[in-house]
Design a binder for these strands. Sequence first.
DNA 1: TAAAGCAATGGAACGTTGTTCCATTCAAAT
DNA 2: ATTTGAATGGAACAACGTTCCATTGCTTTA
Lengths: 233, 233
Amino acid sequence: MPAMTTRPQQGRRRAHALSKAQIVRAAIEILDRDGEHALTFRALSARLATGSGAIFWHVADKEDLLAAATEEIIARLVAEPGNDMEPKRAIRAVALAVFDAIDAHSWLGGQLFRNPAQPAALRISEMIGRSVQALGVPERALFNCWSALINYMLGVAAQNAANARQAHAEADRSAFLANVANRWAHLDPTEFAFVRQVADELRDHDDREQFLAGIDLILAGIGTLTRRADPSP
Amino acid sequence: MPAMTTRPQQGRRRAHALSKAQIVRAAIEILDRDGEHALTFRALSARLATGSGAIFWHVADKEDLLAAATEEIIARLVAEPGNDMEPKRAIRAVALAVFDAIDAHSWLGGQLFRNPAQPAALRISEMIGRSVQALGVPERALFNCWSALINYMLGVAAQNAANARQAHAEADRSAFLANVANRWAHLDPTEFAFVRQVADELRDHDDREQFLAGIDLILAGIGTLTRRADPSP
DNA sequence: TAAAGCAATGGAACGTTGTTCCATTCAAAT
DNA sequence: ATTTGAATGGAACAACGTTCCATTGCTTTA
């Protein structure tokens, strides 16, 4: 019996079958607890007590995994209320829900906007679109108003996610902001007059309010397209 | 003479000294030609006919390298005109300049917005801020108006970059858009009524116009904050 | 001019990652 | 009882960012 290279017998496990949903759930837990960079197939294998091969049987690649995780979170979010609301209120509600979701899962921002055409994300676009339509925006301007809102939402969202990632490296959020604010406050007074001026406000602003203010700004802009009746041209 | 493990003599090269600027220039060329994923220290070493060690002598790490590349592009952009312009025109000009830069260097979007507080990027924020101020926005609203514009700019920018990355995988841009539009057009008619409706417009819209329309929308929104004189409340 | 010091170089080596490969197992179908 | 094939777990691979280090040649010093 010459030395056939035979693998040592492997410990089997089939106690609870492995499923994509289970994998995605574990991935989300790792992402939420330890951050985006901590999600590796090895960490995931360890947590699920299996090998990477088994995971790849259920998942195409890492992008697929992250997409599925995003899908999962957004699906929970979309499954909520918000049928018959006044359009503006509806838009604010959807926007805030997205904002809060990204705030709670800092990895979501980068992901959601790396691929905003994901099925579940499309449902958000749909809700925004209908509300904009309900505002009475003229046909021509519809597409642009809709996309401006979506782009702004995703922009701030991902932006916040990026900040959260950096703030995680330092002590905490407020320390991080104070740090940035200080750096800004010491810039060249003539070249950076404005940035220096808003440095203070940066230090203790509320991201959520700031976000909503931007939404309202765009809504106000949309308002100028629709209210052609009241004032004179 | 026992076997000292001595390295085989290395070929030297000092024909043209290596500098950070030179490295950054080469990095930009790789990024522009072959995309973000193609910029590796090995590719960079090959192009500069050196070793990775030599590169790391001039550059802290990859993040530093990408930041420097971003800085380089933005610096060129900022070094231009735009002193005394009407505020709205100035804002549009800056925004379009940023948009075009990101359009020309598809990697720039993701980078610029992963770290929007980079020195050169701050100069853009400063220009926007001054213009917003010049519009006569009340003190309280200044910070929010400014950040809404910046966030929207970066949002669309990075969004476009993401699309460019995906479009690069497929044939070209228009084929990519047509593909997405087709997928949207075949969604469930009741659940995705709106998205289906705008699918056509997506197919042959102009990114640049769309971007500018969003800017104008925000500017219109800002206008409602400042024009308290003309119409009645 | 000779020696010493040191910024700079180039490439081997390291640790980690995403992914592939494959011998193996178990439950269902035959 | 046998065959089948979906599913498993872990070894192996390629590529990456980064570190390490023997070596070089310019510059400074004696």
